[in-house]
Design a protein around this nucleic acid. Structure first.
Length: 331
DNA sequence: AAGAATCCCAACCGCAAGTTG
DNA sequence: GCAACTTGCGGTTGGGATTCT
């Protein structure tokens, strides 16, 4: 199977397409279809190689191409499919009508990949990166230090220093807890993995859970842990609804992203806004996810979508504001 | 205002699978 | 079965646009 000689021929134009070339190509294909790409340029009167024509047509000129920013729904679909398919851009593109594989690939490389990395997830495996957690004590210390510096403690009295310091530590802990919640999501499909076992230990280490609380099992009852993370109105000493690693993990309530601009209202049990969004798609509502991805961040609100088989799935969300908060705290 | 840095994406490159004679 | 050719795909890059200093 030899390689295509393609654009090596002398005299063929390369680089950006002129409007006139676009017009020629479009007119020809609309009239005749593309037929053989190799012969098309001559027939269409273009001084380009067939490959270049094909790319121009499939990635830009086709009438069914949807341009503009990716919607939150599309973003979620890409994340979810990427966790299953990897860098199979053309396969992913088939699930996003009007989007080309090239466009999706670019979007992944310029946006989604970076987001995952910044959040401490491996963009290829969609799992938490070990180095992120290893660095956690330092990150907490940094967050703490930053708050202290901002408050210029040397001009303040001692008791408020201590209060600020405690607040800063608590804020960092809660950020970390958020991260752990997401981590739990990422590893749910392998509940026996070592990483899931580390979560209680981690919580314990940062003092969010006492050993006795941890030992009270997989059900960490708590009404309002993450209420209003952005503001300072979070409760201390209360715990989120985490039930790990139970078999019902697929249907856990988690941060309610129903209000795009809202604070991070965790499931509060009796609260009036305590809509329980499934943390994960039900087991049979998904394309065959081999490994559950981190597929929810960005400025989306909670949405339903249908997968390729028409199954509807509720997707959990991280709001943009949560993401910003998370990152700024650990920056 | 200007230069530097960064972002973004259209287009190219080259490999490999599929097709044809 | 084999070689030549075609097409599809994923990785990479160049340079214009935008943001930062």
């Amino acid at each position: 199977m030899g390689r295509s000689p393609c654009c090596d021929e002398n005299g063929l134009k390369k680089g950006p397409w002129a409007a006139e070339e676009d017009q020629k190509l479009t007119e020809y294909i609309v009239k005749n279809g593309h037929g053989s790409w190799r012969t098309l340029p001559k027939l269409a009167g273009l001084n380009r190689c067939g490959k270049s024509c094909r790319l121009r047509w499939t990635n830009y000129l086709r009438s069914d191409i949807k341009r503009g920013k990716f919607t939150p729904e599309e973003e979620q679909t890409i994340l979810q499919l990427h966790s299953v398919l990897g860098n199979k851009w053309s396969a992913i593109a088939k699930h996003l009508p009007g989007r080309t594989d090239n466009e999706i690939k670019n979007f992944w490389n310029t946006h989604l990949k970076k987001k995952l990395i910044q959040m401490g997830f491996d963009p290829m495996t969609h799992r938490p990166r070990a180095d992120f957690f290893a660095a956690l004590p330092q990150l907490i210390a940094l967050a703490n230090l930053r708050k202290l510096v901002e408050q210029r403690p040397w001009e303040d009295n001692t008791s408020s220093h201590l209060q600020l310091q405690a607040d800063a530590v608590q804020a960092a802990k809660l950020d970390y807890l958020q991260c752990l919640l997401q981590s739990a999501a990422a590893i749910v499909s392998s509940p026996t993995s070592s990483s899931i076992k580390t979560i209680p230990t981690d919580l314990e280490q940062i003092g969010l859970l006492s050993p006795s609380q941890m030992s009270s099992s997989s059900s960490l009852s708590s009404p309002r842990i993450l209420e209003s993370i952005n503001g300072q109105d979070f409760l201390t000493g209360q715990l989120p609804d985490i039930q790990i690693p139970s078999s019902s993990f697929y249907e856990q309530p988690i941060i309610n992203g129903g209000n795009q601009n809202s604070d991070y209202t965790a499931n509060n049990g009796a609260g009036e806004n305590s809509t329980h969004k499934p943390l994960f798609m039900s087991e049979n509502s998904l394309p065959p996810l081999a490994d559950f991805p981190i597929c929810n961040f960005g400025d989306a609100c909670s949405t339903s979508r249908s997968d390729a088989d028409g199954h509807s799935a509720q997707l959990p969300i991280w709001s943009e504001s949560f993401y910003d908060h998370f990152m700024s705290e650990f920056a």
